[in-house]
Design a protein around this nucleic acid. Structure first.
Length: 993
DNA sequence: GTTCTAGAAC
DNA sequence: GTTCTAGAAC
């Protein structure tokens, strides 16, 4: 069936007819579904005059009424402005008056932000000060209630156009659509993006997938579809038809969470492909992006409901942005072609994007290795892919593609549900690689075009066979297919050999159109749903669209979370095999029990996988009990990298440990001991040598532990739960009466210990009157003020030590009323100490004034004492004492550093120059300057990027390794400029004759 | 193909 | 402050 529609001429007519018509766009969505953000994003970039009418603020910044909104809208429309109606508009009644704003001169559109409730709730829970003023734990209840009465808008209400957005990708599409809408442009009428069960599918090969029953839950969208003006209306209809009602039902009842890739589309044949030739082969990105977009466009019509996805590893991928921009310009259907940031070998498992075919940017020998995508795909595909490839061809010419069906033994098949890999060889522009085209872009472009053509044709040939022609045997099908070439023919045969199941399913479609089919579709969607059931937006699929849309989700874990937070794994459910159902009940009960005592502290249940069953169970139960999701929530991520990878700051983490409190044994315990380093192990040993089931022990983390420096974790609480695993010691042998008791005890101990930490931690904004006498009162305002904001934990590390050295006994070498001495955590030389001033408010050298002169002198004296101590141990050392002009860490600290600079931590130019240019201010000079001029001379950070010069002979070196190798040998005397500033054992002139 | 840097993210 | 990694330099 042809998809060609002469849209150009139709649009033209439309434009002339409706030039300059203002539009009313009703945003439809729950609180925090992104309505305001949507409007603002469009308005920021649009050339059309827009007015956003927000009921939450229309009344001089306060919430107003519907009539106010209507009035304001009418005025704006008269002025020729288009209008966003930014209120929930969730049911027909709420919308009807706004629809009436429409008329012959005004079109009314709806943009439906039909995002998972969970996402909205988590956004609300995290945000403060939003106009809507719906915050905190009530959010869940409110949103859920609102969504229960949700009625999706229909064209029959009077809208001329409706866009349904059920994921970030959809939102981005809508954003692009409205942003690109110039003052005199118009948009095609009809429904877009809806996963409508009634949508009639009639195009080509897709006819067999037509929904068997028509439930009539929506009216007439489909007929309007066929009247739709744009080409995309048809296309979208086709796409969406695959997974209709089932997903909708689930959406309403189970709120599948964050999901930037519309999961409804995940049954659709999809090709994920890397940009060909632009990495190692160094093809010009601009040209490559043009070719990609053109080729995709050319194939668009033949694709049916299949999808093409350009994949790259990083958000910053230039080729992705170029392609996105160009595709948007061409108004390409972003449902059938989009970009995706992620690992092409883990799209399903990590990204939640199901692609049954992936392309490989191969080399001409079709061999693994070589880095990049090729190495990754061969790695992931395993030997099975290698041999399957070898069986089909030994080499590939530039511009060609080879379709390889994946044996079901390949991990890519089992884990990622990839059925085929298509190797593609593009042109090479890299002189260091074979067959370089030597910048001949005429040839190069031709070859790259051919490469994409071959790739897409190969994919189509697969897609066609996948859209099972149900009532035919595989043999029959084969003979009827137009097979592109011999290779593919062989491949197709292979494909059928491992897809009997699929063929079977197709028969169901054809022969049994009633319940069986529905059921199986439901099942499919449920599975997809679970996998996607991410907890928080943070862990969502790494779709770049997320970013582009300036999506509030990304920040939904609040940045200003100085709140005491305990992250804990589910105890006993992993290695100890405790029943998940029971465990989840206990967790929720215990959390509930402690909720009142928590103050503003938070508890976070953490698990590694999106698919974590315990997380979903706990989430469901916590939601049922309406537990404040601000103070208790679940999180998907590595508990040892919550801050560095997830941006979630947890000052305390729990460890599901073993009774010996020993490292190892896999799972969380191994990970935490690993991450904590030897310090954690040593500290743990100090606290206890073993643990009984149901008990917990608190281990304060030395500031030398990476968990402390990198993650800001101050305490680890080891917890031992009951063991139900017969292969582990002390198995309870299925005795869940005992087991539950112990598990309850374990959580009680855990939470109690956490509370005791939280209560003594300085950070708790103290509830009035309740002071904690033993603590020095730290100026919270100061922390909150100039230096912290949302800075990383390490910035504060020295300050904390200076203020409470007794808490850091393990690392403090010396402490007095005035100073604290400790080893630099990352010494840049054999000996490298820091002498901290214990002077409140002296954050850095810039703060030093006359009144600090005594402090400066004390720092110097103490530094000198330590340098001399070291000189006693090693007379060959030479020391300098001084300050960084602009330090990276808060609290004035004097560096005492030996001039060997022999250290693995000395890694880059900045490190070097911070000690070996004028950026490093010698302590004696500083004292003199402050004394004479009232402050110290500070040098600019520009000095840090100077060339690398030997500090002795002043020779220049091209890079750090060379410099380091040079200084390890350089024996030149120190420059005269350092006279009087070096601390060293006087050369033995005294004993000289 | 590897080494190294610089910039971003944390 | 470190870590990570793309891209430059070699």
């Amino acid at each position: 069936m042809e998809m060609d529609i002469d849209d150009a001429s139709q649009l033209k007519g439309e434009e002339e007819k409706e030039k300059g018509k203002p539009i009313v766009v009703l945003l439809v969505g729950a609180p925090a579904s992104g309505k305001s953000t949507f409007c603002e994003s469009v308005m920021q970039a649009s050339s059309r005059p827009w007015v956003r009418i927000c009921q939450d603020t229309i009344n001089n910044g306060k919430a107003g009424t519907k009539p106010q909104c209507l009035k304001s809208a009418t005025i704006s429309l008269k002025e020729g402005k288009s209008v966003f109606i930014d209120r929930c508009n969730l049911n027909k009644e709420q919308r009807v008056d706004f629809v009436k704003l429409g008329g012959p001169q005004v079109e009314v559109h709806a943009v439906v932000l039909d995002l998972p409730a969970k996402l909205c709730i988590s956004r609300i829970a995290k945000r403060t000060g939003h106009e809507g003023n719906l915050q905190g734990g009530k959010a869940a209840a409110v949103v859920n209630r609102m969504l229960q009465t949700k009625e999706l808008p229909k064209l029959s209400e009077g809208f001329s156009r409706i866009m349904f957005c059920q994921g970030e990708t959809d939102v981005q599409t809508a954003l692009n659509t409205y942003t690109a809408l110039g003052p005199s442009d118009t948009l095609p009428h009809g429904c877009f993006g809806q996963k409508d069960p009634n949508a009639k599918t009639q195009l080509g090969i897709m006819k067999f997938l037509k929904r068997p029953h028509e439930t009539n839950s929506q009216d007439s969208t489909c007929s309007q579809f066929t009247d739709g003006k744009g080409p995309c209306s048809k296309a979208q209809e086709t796409v969406s038809s695959l997974s209709g009602t089932a997903s909708q039902k689930i959406k309403v009842s189970e709120d599948p969470a964050v999901n930037s890739i519309s999961q409804n589309d995940n049954d659709v044949p999809t090709l994920a492909f890397p940009s060909i030739s632009t990495a190692d082969f160094r093809f010009d990105l601009e040209k490559a992006s043009n070719i990609i977009v053109e080729k995709v466009e050319q194939f668009m019509d033949k694709l049916g409901n299949t999808r093409l996805v350009l994949v790259d590893l990083t958000q910053r991928s230039k080729i992705l942005s170029l392609v996105r921009a160009k595709a948007a310009q061409k108004n390409m259907d972003s449902k059938r072609f989009f970009t995706f940031v992620g690992d092409i070998t883990q799209l399903h498992s990590k990204g939640g994007l199901h692609c049954d075919v992936i392309a490989n940017a191969a080399n001409w020998r079709l061999k693994p290795g070589g880095g990049g995508v090729n190495a990754a795909i061969f790695d992931a595909g395993g030997p099975a892919l290698e041999s399957a490839t070898k069986n089909l061809a030994k080499s590939l010419l530039p511009g060609n593609a080879l379709v390889v069906p994946l044996p079901s033994t390949s991990p890519l098949y089992s884990r990622e549900k990839v059925t085929h890999v298509i190797h593609v060889l593009g042109p090479n522009m890299n002189p260091h690689r074979p067959n370089c085209l030597d910048n001949d872009y005429i040839k190069g472009c031709k070859i790259l075009e051919d490469a994409y053509s071959s790739l897409f044709e190969g994919f189509l040939s697969i897609a066609k066979t996948k859209v099972k022609f149900p009532n035919r045997s595989s043999q029959g099908t084969q003979s009827e297919l137009s097979v592109p070439d011999n290779k593919t023919e062989g491949i197709l045969r292979n494909h059928f050999s491992h897809s009997e199941q699929e063929t079977e399913n197709c028969k169901n479609y054809e022969s049994d159109r009633s319940k069986k089919c529905t059921k199986s579709e439901n099942a499919v969607v449920v599975v997809g749903c679970k996998e996607q059931d991410l907890v928080s937006p943070l862990s969502g699929a790494a779709s770049d669209e997320t970013k582009a849309g300036e999506n509030p989700a990304a920040g939904s874990i609040s940045q200003h979370d100085d709140v005491p937070t305990l992250a804990f794994p589910s105890i006993s459910t992993a290695g100890f095999q405790f029943d998940l159902e029971k465990a989840s009940t206990i967790i929720v009960d215990k959390v509930e029990e402690f909720m009142d005592k928590l103050g503003n502290a938070r508890l976070v249940l953490v698990d590694l996988s999106n698919r974590s069953e315990i997380l979903s169970l706990v989430r469901a139960k916590a939601a049922q009990k309406n537990i404040d999701s601000k103070r208790f929530f679940t999180y998907v991520g590595d508990i040892t990298r919550l801050y560095s990878e997830g941006g979630l700051r947890c000052n305390v983490i729990a460890n599901a440990t073993n009774w010996r409190l020993k490292a190892g044994g896999g799972g969380v315990n191994s990970a935490i001991f690993d991450a904590g380093g030897p310090d954690l192990e040593a500290m743990t040993k100090n606290q206890a040598s073993s643990l009984l089931p149901g008990e917990a022990v608190v281990v304060p983390l030395p500031s030398t532990s990476p968990l402390y420096t990198r993650e800001g974790v101050t305490h680890v609480i080891h917890v031992l739960g009951p063991n139900m695993n017969p292969e582990r010691p002390n198995c309870l042998d299925g005795d869940y009466i005992k087991g539950c008791k112990i598990l309850q005890d374990a959580y009680s101990s855990l939470f109690e210990k956490f509370l005791s930490i939280a209560n003594t931690q300085v950070k708790i904004p103290k509830i009035s009157g309740k002071s904690i006498p033993s603590e020095p009162s730290l100026p919270e305002e100061k922390i909150k003020g100039t230096l912290t904001k949302s800075w990383s934990p390490w910035v504060q590390a020295l300050y904390k030590i200076a203020m409470q050295p007794e808490k850091y006994k393990n690392e403090v070498l010396e402490a007095s009323d005035d100073v604290v001495v400790l080893n630099d955590m990352y010494p840049k030389a054999k000996k490298h100490l820091l002498v901290l001033a214990r002077f409140e408010g002296l954050d850095c050298l810039a703060d030093a004034r006359k009144e600090h002169i005594q402090t400066l002198k004390t720092l110097h004296a103490v530094g000198l004492k330590w340098a001399e101590k070291f000189l006693h141990e090693d007379a060959s050392l030479v020391f300098r004492l001084g300050y960084h002009s602009v330090p990276s860490m808060r609290q004035l600290h004097l560096h005492v550093i030996s001039q060997d600079f022999e250290s693995k931590h000395l890694k880059n130019k900045k490190h070097w120059n911070s000690f070996n240019t004028d950026f490093f201010r010698d302590s004696l000079d500083v004292i003199e300057e402050v004394n004479d001029m009232g402050k110290a001379i500070l040098e600019d950070e520009k000095l840090l990027s100077l060339e690398l010069r030997c500090h002795r002979c002043r020779s220049v070196h091209p890079n750090m390794p060379r410099l380091k190798s040079h200084i390890s040998n350089c024996q030149a005397p120190f420059p005269a400029a350092l006279n009087g500033r070096l601390v060293l054992v006087q050369s033995n002139s005294a004993s000289d004759p």
